[in-house]
């Protein structure tokens, strides 16, 4: 992000071509504009790509879950391809330790095409603009593509003893929004 963008939310949409040549637009989440398409993305989501129980699988539970993770104090970005949402990344504040928890989901048809990298960059930029300082996440330890992506973004492993690795990023020390 350049200085003249000034980090004022909402940040402008970013348009790019993914590795399959599809035009993708990453933008800050807007409930009225995005919600229907976001719900549809999770309804179409392959259960094999669920992580630690999310996303939920029935529409009722998807709606409740989206209400919770797009509520006040959260930061969300979505990736659009044409009329569809194909990716979503979110930061949810953690009451216990003053940090935010990160999660990202990309629809199966748009994985391994660079969409996740763009989503995370936009999300971390928006999180920094919102004043968050520390981001953490858990990732199943067999999920090598996700772990590689997080490492590329500057996340360090803080706990690798469990079935899920815990990783952390200090937003005040890094700039991965570029």
């Amino acid at each position: 992000m350049t200085d003249d963008a000034a980090g004022e939310p909402p940040s402008p949409p970013r348009t790019f071509d993914d590795r399959e040549g599809r035009t993708i637009i990453v933008r800050d989440h807007d409930h009225d504009r995005d919600r229907e398409a976001l719900t549809a993305m999770y309804e179409a989501f392959d259960p094999a790509d669920r992580a630690q129980g999310i996303p939920p699988m029935t529409t009722d539970r998807i709606v409740d879950w989206l209400d919770a993770i797009t509520g006040p104090e959260t930061v969300n970005v979505v990736a659009w391809h044409g009329d569809d949402v194909v990716g979503h990344a979110t930061l949810v504040p953690d009451d216990e330790n003053g940090a935010v928890e990160l999660a990202i989901f990309v629809l199966q048809s748009h994985q391994s095409a660079g969409v996740g990298t763009q989503l995370i960059r936009a999300l971390l930029g928006a999180g920094r603009a919102a004043g968050f300082e520390r981001v953490w996440l858990t990732v199943e330890r067999w999920n090598d593509p996700a772990i590689s992506l997080y490492e590329k973004m500057g996340f360090d492993a803080t706990d690798t003893e469990s079935l899920e690795h815990e990783m952390e990023l200090d937003l005040t020390q890094t700039d991965n929004t570029g």
Binding site: A51, Q52, W65, E101
Partner: peptide
């Protein structure tokens, strides 16, 4: 977790 992820205890 706040995100809704299940984390097994040790």
């Amino acid at each position: 977790s706040p995100m809704g992820k299940i984390k097994l205890g040790r």
